[in-house]
Design a protein around this nucleic acid. Structure first.
Ligand SMILES: [Mn+2]
Ligand SMILES: [Mn+2]
Ligand SMILES: [Zn+2]
Ligand SMILES: [Zn+2]
Lengths: 148, 148
DNA sequence: CCTGCTGGTGAGACTAAGTATCAATTGCTA
DNA sequence: TAGCAATTGATACTTAGTCTCACCAGCAGG
């Protein structure tokens, strides 16, 4: 999703189009997948953009609330974010090598979980699932390097 | 799992039976389910037991390594721990009301996930799943209160 | 039982995420 | 263009977690 579209969503929800928000969205949109707040800050530093800590977190929370971002724990157990496409319930394949994120077309839990929970009379409200591994691009690159 | 048994495991692995470790295990064993480091510290304060911050984290890490504890994110997005029974791959039903934790008898993801990942040529290495909701005890209590 | 070696401890400094406060600023609207 | 509310950023605070290093205490062997 491009920075432009995210800005439009902000406006559509009555939020102001401020300087820091534009800068942040610009940087976020460049990220190929999962990113931590630290990486975001580094990107900002690189581009010599100054945005206050508080504003970074405020904006991230805002974007999460609007469904433009999702909070996702990376492979390394570090907290981070991911640009989301759909607002609906879904899960991610997260590449531990490059951080790329793929969305699963369906929830692989739902069915079996409902049965298991029912057996134990547990009322499920929500769940989160994150899948870690290696994406096809990284796999290919790896095999190329091994051929050398 | 009782404090006694955990101590035995420590000893069996060549770790010393120190004062702080005993105190910590005592307090951990009392917890009915999920707990945060904060809660643990509060419990210690209550019982007027002094254990250094570093030692708390060291011990928690140790217990995680030995498979006696698991790191689990609570319903409120707060990081925490859970006393585990089995060392094998499994998941939890976490009660958002009381923090109690139930272990699922099987992984509700494995099968369907393997198929979905294969389709996209993503090599799955691991996944984590946590389920939040309301346990049977809390449901009962709730309905009792509503009758009043 | 004593003693030494070594594993373990705790104070304290440090990194980092995230929240709260509040005065100063800026986007927008009329 | 003026004014007001939304937004910002400096700053202080909370909590998780790591690291260092001088000191301490379990425990094995004499
Ligand atoms: Mn997504
Ligand atoms: Mn468990
Ligand atoms: Zn990859
Ligand atoms: Zn409960």
């Amino acid at each position: 999703m491009r920075a432009e579209e995210m800005l439009q969503t902000l406006v559509a929800h009555g939020y102001r189009l401020t300087e820091p928000r534009q800068a942040l969205l610009e940087v976020i949109a460049c990220r190929p997948g999962w990113f931590s707040v630290r990486e975001l800050s580094e990107d900002l530093g690189q581009k010599k953009i100054r945005v206050g800590r508080a504003t970074i977190f405020r904006t991230l929370n805002l974007l999460v609330d609007l469904g433009l971002l999702e909070r996702v724990r990376g492979a390394n157990e570090v907290e981070g974010y991911v640009v989301t496409g759909a607002g609906e319930h879904h899960h991610h394949l997260i590449c531990s090598r490059c951080g790329r994120v793929e969305e699963l077309p369906e929830c692989p839990v739902a069915e079996r979980l409902a049965e298991l929970a029912a057996e134990r009379q547990f009322q499920v409200v929500s769940h989160n699932l994150e899948v870690y591994g290696v994406c096809i691009q990284c796999l290919r690159q790896e095999s190329l390097e091994q051929e050398k």
